[in-house]
Amino acid sequence: MIRILLFLVFVLALAVPFFNRAEPTLFGFPFFYWYQIAIVPAGSLLIYLVYRAEDRGEAE
């Protein structure tokens, strides 16, 4: 069930109408740009949470 977090990555990345806007800006970046840069580490973190929950410490 923890894999629902992977589905969340798709929601974050494909919510185009939500992130196609200029405001609010961050460090001079319009929202469209900083949001889509921010989902990269966010996606990585979500996958890490799934990995940590599922990893049984077997061999490589």
Binding site: L12, Q36, V40
Partner: peptide, 10 residues
Amino acid sequence: AMPYTVLIYP
């Protein structure tokens, strides 16, 4: 390229 290269990982 951003959403594209985010989605390849799940």
